[in-house]
């Protein structure tokens, strides 16, 4: 069983657009971000199954995660 992680914008640089992470009990967003070597300040929007979720919430098998970096120019 795995968790699908979809990366957007510059988070794809040096990584695939879509990455599968093996599910293990207690896995949360913080662990996913660390496994993918993404600095925390590059995680602006963290969606689980299309809904905004805190990084410390536990994930479930087959969850689909989307991560967007911050865009702030004007």
């Amino acid at each position: 069983m795995s968790i699908e992680v979809r990366l957007f914008a510059t988070l794809r640089e040096g990584r695939d657009k879509k990455i599968y992470v093996d599910y293990e009990e207690g896995l949360n967003g913080n662990a996913i971000v660390e496994k993918l070597n993404i600095p925390k300040d590059e995680v602006a929007i963290f969606l689980v199954n299309g809904r905004d979720l805190a990084l410390d919430k536990e994930l479930k098998e087959n969850d689909v995660i989307s991560i967007f970096p911050p865009v702030g120019g004007g």
Binding site: T10, V43, I45, P69, P70, V71, G72
Partner: peptide, 27 residues
């Protein structure tokens, strides 16, 4: 990359777009 959202009075949409951990953007 770009992003757009409409924020009506009482909404706190920016807190979800820019959590505390993000101090500046990709630009």
């Amino acid at each position: 990359y770009g992003q757009i959202s409409t924020i009506l009075p009482g909404d706190n949409t920016l807190a979800k777009i820019y959590p505390d951990r993000c101090k500046e953007g990709l630009e």
